[in-house]
Design a protein around this nucleic acid. Structure first.
Lengths: 291, 291
DNA sequence: GATATTATCTGACTAATATCAGATAAATTA
DNA sequence: TAATTTATCTGATATTAGTCAGATAATATC
């Protein structure tokens, strides 16, 4: 389909121009891009030089010179790592922090300018950007345990409950209580809370809490709309099953609602079998899986 | 909304990585990026040096050297423009054409790799890319006359009729006859056909054909879904009115259907007044505007 | 026809990025 | 303790990209 390729090319040209404009604005601070990138990558907390080299894919000599330049400008400091005095740790001075904040500000300003170009469909534009970003990053999404009270975890839960109240009639805008009295049940050694991350933003979650002796319950499986179709739900389920095994459980249960058809298909296709009801509304389907 | 900015940043990082990978793959052909870009920009038909300079925003000295390099590689030829012998025209040799085709192939390969990452929602991904590209290019969309039989024009018309049959019950999948017997009416001096372009892809159209002595009819106003909310319909209407004036018409008419609510709002807000019916199904509303 | 303008080219120069072969010092391994 | 590995730095050098001031020749303007 030649037109498809033309569309992707148009997209590439558009974003190339945009990133070019951003780099251009970064140059306005009188520092080459390489140095600006290093300054930004050092971050608020500081960073090992080896780390920087790995992330920015820079030659060791080049990075060394850039760091020396930042030091000479009074923006960064280098100290030997006390644990391993071969390594050096770069940190930003107060002026360095301020300078980094300026780059942040420029970045946000460009982002704002992009949004301003879509006055009437800001949300559609953001959703489109999410879909593109998540798809391009698909093979970089990773799943990590999180605390159930973490803001990202709570954002996922809020989205999960919004989805429920949207799909299941009878559930009004249910929302997570804050603080969630059940939170301890979702922490080891009782249970777990897993978040899927795509480049610093959460794009999915799943959790586990104790139900009966030796049996845990899988709860709150949610995938960001931008990340659907990438097999993330399956990955989350696999991850939570691994966690359950690690916590010593011998079996899992879960309940769900007929309105969540994709979820039900997923359970049926991955070793879950229907069981008798063990909960009430809004559940309409119940499954179990031995570990 | 801080999260909004985080989402745009994620998008920026994702596409930066992508374009970086593309440039990387272009370097694989053993030629600096600048030269590759010039080679590509010369195109199959050849290009004036001044043109290249304008498009690529290159210094005249730099471009001159890059061209000399391509010439030395046996990829390009430079000849004085016969019409103005100060100007020089760059054309690709056979080897140059082949080399350019290789860059095309690399580009298409990267595009294919992107699509492959969205096996289950290819169309959604493409639509999202369109929305982003068109929004970022919003201030670069331009409207130009086209021939009504041009493939791009026909693609817009097909989309227009698909929209009609989708929105208006009673219209089955109507499609443009090929060749369109009315095409001559949409050409000067009788009428016109305008296309809106966003970076080489059509994103909207409108046309004009004679109706009565001194009166023309506006037909087939269509805007690509990715380009809605950017004021393009209004620009197209203004452009077609200008064309009508230039063709000597004193008044315009149009008919439309109640299902096309945004269009009706647009007409009402830009000087059109309701008139008595002058056509039948599927029209439900009729407007006129003096010029 | 003299003068100004335009399009391109050349030469001199700079900045940024990149590469690579040692040098140095700290840690690890034998 | 000696030898090896690792992390970083220094110096030398190359490539790419970019700038700018003329030079040259063709065209446009007066």
């Amino acid at each position: 389909m030649p037109e498809t390729l033309a569309r992707i090319r148009r997209f590439n040209r558009a974003v190339t121009r945009e990133t070019g404009a951003m780099e251009e604005s970064f140059l306005g601070r009188g520092r080459p891009l390489g140095a600006a990138r290093v300054l930004w990558a050092i971050g608020e907390a500081g960073r090992d030089v080896a780390d920087l080299r790995a992330e920015l894919a820079l030659d060791s000599g080049l990075l060394s010179r850039i760091l020396r330049g930042l030091e000479a400008e009074g923006l960064a400091q280098l100290e030997p790592d006390p644990a391993d005095r071969r390594r050096r740790r770069a940190t930003l001075t107060e002026r360095g922090q301020a300078e980094r904040a300026e780059y942040d500000r420029l970045n946000d300003q460009m982002a704002g300018a992009i949004l301003a170009r879509a006055p009437r469909h800001r949300d559609a534009l953001l959703a489109a950007m999410d879909l593109v970003a998540v798809t391009l990053n698909a093979d970089r999404i990773d799943i990590r345990p999180a605390d159930p009270t973490d803001p990202s975890a709570r954002a996922c839960l809020a989205a999960y409950f919004a989805l429920l109240s949207d799909k299941i009639s009878g559930i009004s805008t249910a929302h997570v209580p804050d603080p969630d009295p059940d939170a301890p049940l979702f922490r080891p050694p009782h249970g777990t809370f897993l978040l899927a991350w795509c480049d610093r933003l959460p794009v999915g979650c799943v959790s586990l809490k104790p139900l009966e002796p030796g049996v845990a319950e899988v709860k709150r499986l949610w995938v960001d709309p931008a990340a659907r179709g990438l097999g993330l739900a399956r990955r989350l389920m696999r991850a939570v099953e691994d966690q359950a095994r690690a916590l010593g459980y011998g079996a899992l249960k879960l309940d769900t609602n007929a309105a969540l058809a994709e979820a039900i298909t997923l359970y049926e296709r991955s070793g879950w079998t229907p069981i008798a009801p063990y909960t009430g509304f809004p559940a309409t389907h119940w499954f179990a899986k031995p570990l």
